[in-house]
Structure formats: structure tokens, C-alpha cells
């Protein structure tokens, strides 16, 4: 036993040799990441100071504006930007995403289970998923008006495809033997769905959800930029048109942070659901 372990460390000569140095290595890695980040921020600051450009404000100004715009006051009162831009944006993207997840998984399970059904709808799906969702904005404006319905539906429509395709793929990847086992134990159709199909397809489904999440943010922003009177996308465009470049940058940074947080949240959910298998977090088409 000891030897096989040693041989595998031999493949990676720099692997940790004792717990103490392992911990030290963890710390040095941790420090390395943040030091590099800090150095780059500092360089960014210095560069903007050395070569002033209105389009590229100093990061310090950007973070100042961001704090002013979104951090709640000392008495916990939410700022107008938080109320008018951030919360509506989050509401739209989460609602659209929720609709998409529910519909895409249900439809995907149905298609994945029935080859016939799949044959009927396959060309339609192949076409619809290939339409770049922003190209639909004018049509959605005509069909659903300029209100939030249009934005929520656009997000739902655009994010549905990766989840749908991955669900189909995931359902199809379940071995026949699992169904046969279920048949032998006389397990009902509904509990087969719950106990075999969904868990079996879960890794793929979640990979699709991950891809869709960044798509959802893109659609949220673009839909707010084209036609809205609130939202983070709207505020970025307004700032640009009003020459409020620090505000524009603050919006971009905020979107990065929101994306990061949503992604982290998804990772936590994924870990819980997929505790039985190690997920690679790899993107799939």
C-alpha cells in the first residue's frame, strides 16, 4: 500500500511530503492568488494615474462610487440604486431562470425518455437553440410589450436550451440495466422518475444549468440595455450616455461580483446534489 502511494507521488515530484509543509503550501498558494490580484489592482491604479483617460477612471474612484451607489446606509436603508436597479435585475434573472429550469428539465426528461417524441421535435429544437436570443428582442418587444414580462421570458427562452439539451443527454445516458432493475422491483413510473431518471441525469443537468447561468446574466443585461427604465444594464447605459464613467465601471464590477456569487451558490448546490460523485465543473456543449 505504502509503495503504490509513494510511486504516485513520484510522478509529481513537488507534491507535499508532510502535513506541515502541505499546510504551508496551501497558505502560500492562497497568498499567491491574492497577492497577484492586489498587484494587478495596484498596477491598474498606477496606470490610470499615469495615463489619465476619462474612459478609464481610477479603480479607487470606481470602488468609491460602487460603495456609494449600493452599500446600504448606516441605518440599513437601501440606496435608490439598490432598489431601482439591482433588485429588479436580480428578480428578472432569477424568475426567468426558474421558469427555464422547470420547463427545460420537464421537457428534457420527456424527450430523453421517448425516442419518438424526440424525432418529432428535434429539428425545431435544433433551430430554436441556434437562434441568438438577443436577435429575438425586437420580436419579443412586439409580442410581449416593453414590460418585465418580455425580459423574464427572453431570459427563460435563452437559458432553456443548454439545460434542455443536457437533460436529454443525461436521461439517455442512464443504462438500461437501471430501468430493468426498477422493473424487477416493480417500482412505479413516478418513483422511477424521482429515483432513477433525475438523479442519473443530474450531473449533466447541472452542467447545463451552469452554462445557462452566464447566459442568463448576458440576457438580463442586454434586455435592460435595449428597452428598460431600471436595472443594472439600464444604469450602465445611462451612465455611459451621461458621461458618468466611474458609475459605468461600477456597474460592470457589480455584475462581475453578482456573477461570481451566483456561480459560487450554484457550486454549493451542485456539491450537495452530486455528493455521490465528483463533478468536474467542465462546460459541455
Amino acid at each position: 500500500m505504502a509503495l503504490t502511494a509513494s510511486i504516485s507521488t513520484a510522478n509529481r515530484p513537488r507534491a507535499s511530503r508532510e502535513p506541515q509543509s502541505a499546510r504551508r503550501q496551501w497558505w502560500s498558494r492562497f497568498a499567491l492568488r491574492w497577492i497577484v490580484l492586489a498587484v494587478l489592482l495596484a498596477l491598474w491604479q498606477l496606470a490610470t494615474m499615469a495615463f489619465p483617460s476619462p474612459f478609464f477612471p481610477q479603480p479607487i474612484r470606481i470602488f468609491e462610487r460602487a460603495a456609494l451607489l449600493w452599500l446600504p446606509g448606516p441605518n440599513g436603508v437601501l440606496t435608490p440604486s439598490m432598489l431601482n436597479d439591482v433588485l429588479p435585475s436580480m428578480g428578472r434573472v432569477l424568475l426567468g431562470f426558474a421558469i427555464s429550469v422547470v420547463l427545460a428539465i420537464s421537457l428534457g426528461v420527456a424527450i430523453g425518455l421517448s425516442r419518438k417524441f424526440a424525432d418529432y421535435v428535434d429539428p425545431i429544437i435544433q433551430f430554436l437553440r441556434a437562434v441568438p436570443p438577443p436577435a429575438l428582442i425586437p420580436i419579443f418587444l412586439v409580442l410581449f410589450g416593453t414590460g418585465d414580462e418580455m425580459r423574464v421570458l427572453l431570459i427563460a427562452f435563452g437559458t432553456a436550451w443548454p439545460i434542455l439539451l443536457n437533460t436529454i443527454d443525461g436521461v439517455r445516458s442512464i443504462e438500461e440495466l437501471k430501468y430493468e432493475t426498477a422493473t424487477v422491483f416493480r417500482i412505479s413510473f413516478v418513483s422511477r422518475l424521482k429515483r432513477i431518471v433525475l438523479p442519473g441525469a443530474a450531473p449533466k443537468i447541472l452542467a447545463g444549468v451552469r452554462t445557462s447561468l452566464s447566459l442568463g446574466l448576458i440576457l438580463m443585461v442586454i434586455s435592460e440595455m435595449v428597452a428598460a427604465s431600471s436595472g443594472i444594464g439600464f444604469s450602465i447605459v445611462q451612465a455611459q450616455r451621461g458621461f458618468g464613467f466611474p458609475d459605468m465601471w461600477a456597474g460592470i464590477v457589480l455584475l462581475g461580483i453578482i456573477g461570481f456569487l451566483l456561480n459560487t451558490l450554484l457550486t454549493v448546490i451542485e456539491r450537495r446534489i452530486l455528493a455521490w460523485q465528483r463533478s468536474s465543473g467542465r462546460e459541455t456543449a
Binding site: A2, L3, S6, T9, A10, R17, E18
Partner: peptide, 11 residues
């Protein structure tokens, strides 16, 4: 020898 100190393993 793989490793050092207490975990050293003479192969």
C-alpha cells in the same frame, strides 16, 4: 527514500 522525517519510507 520517499518523504522525509517521520513519514520517510525507505523503498
Amino acid at each position: 527514500t520517499y518523504g522525509t522525517g517521520a513519514k520517510a519510507h525507505l523503498a
